[in-house]
Design a protein around this nucleic acid. Structure first.
Lengths: 193, 193
DNA sequence: CGTCTATTTGAATGTACTCAAAAGCGGTGG
DNA sequence: CCACCGCTTTTGAGTACATTCAAATAGACG
């Protein structure tokens, strides 16, 4: 049930049996059908989510009804509207399942409690956020400095498995372009070889 | 000397006098003239930098020689090429002083040592990176979903002081547009009132 | 099989870019 | 203190890339 998450945790910190038992006793599992919401914009994010299986996306919807993908998540990734979770204010992002999914939920109180009782977790989260920050900075640089076809090329290089698991229009949205544009970019790439 | 940094630290954790003494004994201060490099792309980032006074920017230079600003930093902000710092590999970013600046340097070894000896610091960094991550996510969403003039408007709203302290072409670069475009956007905003 | 959604293709439009040149501004030295 | 130089900002004209809107085709799912 929690083996993937415990494996993940073990990459950063080592827990005693007692700590492991305490930690896992606080976790909940949630199953989602494809297209089902995990979080809707406007609701408050009550949990951090760790993906056990399946895949999800976080996205905003602008005033014209266009979706903009902030993040994809597959097995062993985390996904959330972090700001909403931390401040317990309405979420800006929607999160839904792109495939049937199983996620582990860590509630807001649990998060605090775990950090208080097992301070080692501060380290895990510190490293997690640190890495995530580096990735996000890189994405920003790429967005402001590279043309769409280059961003797509890098996306394929970095996340080859995503191509099969996320529909093309969601990838387009993640890259900041329209589905039509991505379709044309793919056509050109195919022609060149 | 270290009062601003200690004040910053105190927002997140409380240190004993002994811990404070230990921590500050490991810090170094560095003065920079305007335009002086703090870090050059290709060199390894040996420190985390906390800005005491003045302001700096981190940016990449692409193959056409164009600069792309990743981050601005003013008093009481941190700036670094985090990936280079953590992995001790050559930096992708340049960092230089936009105004004469004074920065506090925390060396790579110091960083580890402080985290080991005073684990409370894990918490501070965790919260720091967490907040920074939220900001970066928001910037990505804005970059992929908003037109240039909207991004500029939000930039002014969020960082009103930056307008006076950073030259316009650097702000343009941060927003992912050319200086010419920003100039035209400003003209239009002025005309509308 | 039929319906709904995703992807492709086409044509017209628009936003931001490039290149070029002028105007503005700040710092430096005579 | 003023004149000059270099860098920044502005303005203009032409261009390119990506967008919008519309329609056709292809795929997925019940």
């Amino acid at each position: 049930m929690f083996d993937k998450l415990l494996k993940y945790v073990a990459k950063y910190i080592s827990l005693t049996e007692e700590e492991t038992a305490f930690f896992t006793s606080l976790l909940k599992v949630r199953l989602l059908r494809k297209r089902q919401y995990l979080l809707q914009a406007g609701d408050v994010s009550r949990n951090e989510y760790f993906v056990n299986s399946g895949c999800l996306r976080a996205y905003t919807v602008d005033d014209k009804g266009m979706e903009h993908v902030v993040q994809f998540a597959i097995e062993e990734w985390w996904i959330n509207d972090l700001y909403s979770f931390l401040t317990q204010t309405p979420a800006a992002y929607n999160i839904d399942a792109v495939e049937d999914a199983e996620v582990i939920c860590i509630g807001r109180d649990t998060y605090e409690l775990v950090l208080e009782k097992i301070p080692k977790f501060e380290r895990m989260y510190r490293i997690m956020f640190q890495s995530s920050l580096i990735t996000h900075q890189r994405r920003i640089i790429e967005n402001i400095s590279l043309p769409a076809h280059e961003r797509y090329r890098l996306f394929l290089e970095r996340y080859p498995q995503f191509e099969q698991r996320f529909p093309q229009h969601q990838i387009a949205s993640y890259l900041g372009i329209t589905p039509e544009s991505l379709s044309r970019i793919r056509k050109q790439l195919a022609e060149k070889g």
